[in-house]
Amino acid sequence: DTWDMPTPYPDKTFHTQNIIEFAKDVEKATHGKLTIKVHSAGSLFKHKEIKNAVRGGQVPIGEFFLGLLANENPAFGIDTQPFLATDYKQAAALWKAQRPVVEKLLGKQGLMVLFSVPWPPQGLYTKHEIKTVADLKGLKFRTYNATLERFAKLVGAAPTQVQVPDIPQAFATGRVEAMITSPSTGANSKAWDYVSYYTNIQAWVPKNIVVVNARAFHRLSKDEQAAVIKAAQEAQTRGWAMSKKETAEKTAILRENGMHIITPSPELMAGLKKIGGEMMTQWKKDAGAQGAAILNAYKP
């Protein structure tokens, strides 16, 4: 059997590299009875379509950014809440608490969770140094979802919408002046071309998730099912290690190319965490019982 697997990010991204390894492991463990053909960089389905393509059985397996589903249910987006879980240890604890809820919600759509791997912790990219929250006031701040919009407003920044490919030009022309993203995205888009400061605020640790269509999974033999589950567990462990390595490597690349890598001042962090707290209060209201279940289970 051959499984087509759409993934949103390019081949060189560590998430895709990890998935390619996963595919090899499955093929080896099933002695070639199940092969997974990875279609990277959205070449089969666009990012936004991947989840529904797996749900509808158009492909048996796929990867996507978990936060993309935050509008469906806030529980999917808890890993994009600012300053709730900010390092890998906390992120791991959060995923442990979040996983049962995500499994239940996706289970209703006929999807099974295989594994989830985080992006590096998110930092702040700006043209000038940011020493306190007040320095963000009035800056044009890139937002792409409701959480970031609220965050921008709370720090006093001016939210602005910029599509990913437009980012360099938008910084060059002043259409955007600050953004929060991972060192990976910054290094891959050569952020030093348009900004000088990277402040390592570790705002949140978002994740990608790999899901499989439950019907397709149950059509596999018991041995094949076991092989997939085992390879998925290994992929999750390997992916987290790759992510940590990625953080160090990509931050080094930013530094080598002349960007100032700033450790945030205590004042800045105190101000940001206060805002993070306010946002959590709102999130709890929105997320209801499922949100409470995650937060009760979360032991950072």
Binding site: P10, K12, A41, V164, S189, K190, D193
Partner: peptide, 11 residues
């Protein structure tokens, strides 16, 4: 092309 190959689009 830039997105698929991780080349800088500005460049």
């Amino acid at each position: 092309y830039g997105v698929a190959t991780e080349q800088s689009i500005a460049r």
